[in-house]
Design a protein around this nucleic acid. Structure first.
Length: 271
DNA sequence: ATCGCCTCCTGCGCGC
DNA sequence: TGCGCGCAGGAGGCGA
């Protein structure tokens, strides 16, 4: 479900209620997520104060003095802040109770997400090694994409969705940024020109920044930390618009499968 | 090294 | 109303 803007929206939503608060208790109702939730989680963070929440790629990093919690929302996960007396829902798997009587609840029907613990420097965790640059940072440049893409036969859409190349670009924003750049999602990455990478880099930054501003994209169930939807859906040009008219010409948006994922493009605007 | 396929899991909307 | 099917915002792991 969530791509970078949705994860960032979640971070912004839960931070004010949790940072500088002390964990009173932890309840793990379902430890069978993508990887098992560590049994020692409650022992690790009970009585400890949350110092800050950072985001790297689509991972949320909850920093404590002696280590960090690594949370990934997978396809269907969400984090919400609620008053502790609110009834638990089905699929509320991990509940962190803070001293201000708020609870952070990890909810994930499909259980593709994870809640992990890394002692010491949270960034030393294996999952955070070999990640590409953050798309909204200065390290993400046209040269970066150009250099890594030479001789690569993979479709450009898969290329920009590869977290080793650049993090945070998921299925929605890959289709959107390629449309904005006039590049067909099926093009071989190695055949995309320098000039096209300049547009693509710019448009990835643009589309992600704009979506964060609008609170992310809510297709069916995404809500921010306070239970509110995002409003970027109304800005989508191609994603989920198969058989509809292109927003810039009179052609019909096509849907194809690339790398087992639905992809959307305008056959007239994108080459 | 690179690529493409499979997998984990539940819920929803659709057609019959 | 109910059932079966296909599809869904991710991404690690594997074999070729």
């Amino acid at each position: 479900m969530p791509e970078l803007p949705e994860v960032e929206t979640t971070r912004l939503g839960i931070s004010p209620h949790t940072i500088n608060e002390t964990v009173e208790s932890v309840l793990v109702r379902q430890s069978s997520l993508r990887w098992p939730v560590p049994r020692s989680l409650a022992k690790k963070i009970s009585g400890k104060t949350l110092l800050g929440i950072e985001r790297r790629s689509k991972y949320l990093l909850l920093q404590f003095e002696h280590g960090g919690l690594i949370i990934h929302l997978g396809m269907s996960g969400s984090l919400r802040i609620v008053d502790a007396d609110l009834e638990l829902r089905k699929h509320d798997h991990v509940i962190i109770h803070f001293s201000n009587n708020k609870e952070l609840r990890f909810h994930d029907p499909r259980r593709f997400g994870c809640v992990l613990w890394q002692s010491g420097d949270v960034y030393s965790h294996k999952l955070l090694q070999s990640l590409g640059p953050e798309p909204l940072s200065d390290k993400f440049t046209p040269e970066h994409l150009y250099n890594l893409s030479r001789k690569r036969k993979v479709a450009i859409k898969n290329f920009i969705m590869n977290a080793n190349i650049v993090v945070g670009v998921g299925n929605i924003y890959a289709s959107e940024s390629l449309f904005m750049s006039g590049i067909r999602p099926s093009r071989q990455a190695g055949k995309v020109t320098r000039k096209e990478f300049e547009r693509l880099t710019q448009n990835i930054k643009r589309v992600l920044a704009k979506s964060i501003k609008q609170g992310g994209t809510t297709l069916r169930d995404f809500v921010n930390g306070n239970g509110e939807p995002g409003y970027f859906k109304q800005s989508l040009h191609v994603y989920g618009r198969e058989n509809e008219i292109c927003t810039t010409c009179d052609s019909t948006i096509k849907q194809v499968t690339i790398g087992q994922r639905s992809s959307f493009y305008c056959p007239a605007c994108q080459h």
